[in-house]
Amino acid sequence: MCRKTVLFIAIVAVVAGAAYAPAYAANRDDALADMTGAFNGWRHSGLTNEGERFVAAYPRPPVDRGAQRFRTLIEGRLKQINKADRKPPTLVVNGNATPLYTDDEGAFARPWAFGPGSNSIEIVSPDGRHRQRMQFFEADRNRPAAKLRAIVTWNDPKAQVDLHVITPEGLHAFWANPAFEDGSGFDVDSVDGAGPGIFSSAAPGHGTWLFFLNYWGNFDATGYNFDSNAHEREVITAQLTLVFNENTPDEKRETMTVPLRKIGDLMLIKSERL
């Protein structure tokens, strides 16, 4: 008999002050999954921020250094875990794929930032044969639409990769300066697991934007460390995705994948003129 690698029991997306009309797309593989959505308000006080306690109680609470309030917590539990699988399931959020790391019981939690309009969450089993998808519509008119969104993810649960954004005016957004006065900044800056870091701007200035990635260090249950052997992969694969006019007919996206080999690596990934 062929054993199914992973079945999924639930995804619970909890959003602060948002109005949702969830819709569920089903196919033959999804029929075996129980997917639910509960939107009861996720509050910033539930996060662990820079300067507080360094505890990686994976998969939660996520350690999120983002400065803005438009976050969503995607959480749930896998029905079955095949510990022989060396490859984790994949979480795909609005087309952005990232490894889905869990605790020993299959529980996961991943912060994200959704804009108004149609959004999707999908989980793909390690062998790629089984999928589970939730589609929902964000109807909160108070939530700004991102005309520019930069998303970084990576494939090592113990590595900490930082996104640095430099605006045409010379402003520098990164973990120690996560937000600007114009309202743009990091919605999410997660160091627990494989990210993401998500920078958003509703009104990006005209000129050249610079996007850097920095392999800053490692992170585990003891906190941050700079042990060159403390990561899981010899070469970490980081992915930067730029999304323009998200969730509109004019949406465009560009994805770049780069290797990071040693702590301290700082790379200019993209110079984008808007």
Rank of each mutant, 00 (worst) to 15 (best):
C2G: 12
V6W: 03
L7A: 04
F8D: 01
I9G: 07
A10D: 15
A13H: 08
V15I: 10
A16R: 15
G17Q: 15
P22L: 01
A23Y: 08
A26G: 03
A26R: 09
R28V: 03
D29F: 07
D30K: 02
L32N: 05
D34H: 05
D34I: 01
F39E: 08
F39Y: 10
T48P: 05
G51N: 15
P62Q: 11
R65M: 09
R86K: 14
P89S: 14
V93I: 14
N96P: 00
N96F: 11
N96I: 15
A97K: 14
T98M: 15
T98C: 07
T102N: 04
D103Y: 04
G117I: 04
I123H: 04
G128F: 14
G128H: 10
H130V: 09
Q132H: 03
N142D: 13
A146G: 01
W154D: 03
K158H: 09
A159V: 14
A159H: 07
Q160H: 15
V161R: 02
V161P: 02
L163E: 05
H164P: 00
P168K: 10
P168M: 03
G170A: 10
F174C: 06
F174D: 04
P178Y: 04
P178W: 06
E181R: 14
F186P: 01
F186E: 06
H206I: 12
F211D: 12
Y215K: 09
G217P: 02
G223M: 06
Q239E: 13
L242E: 05
L242Q: 03
E246R: 09
T257L: 11
P259F: 10
E272C: 08
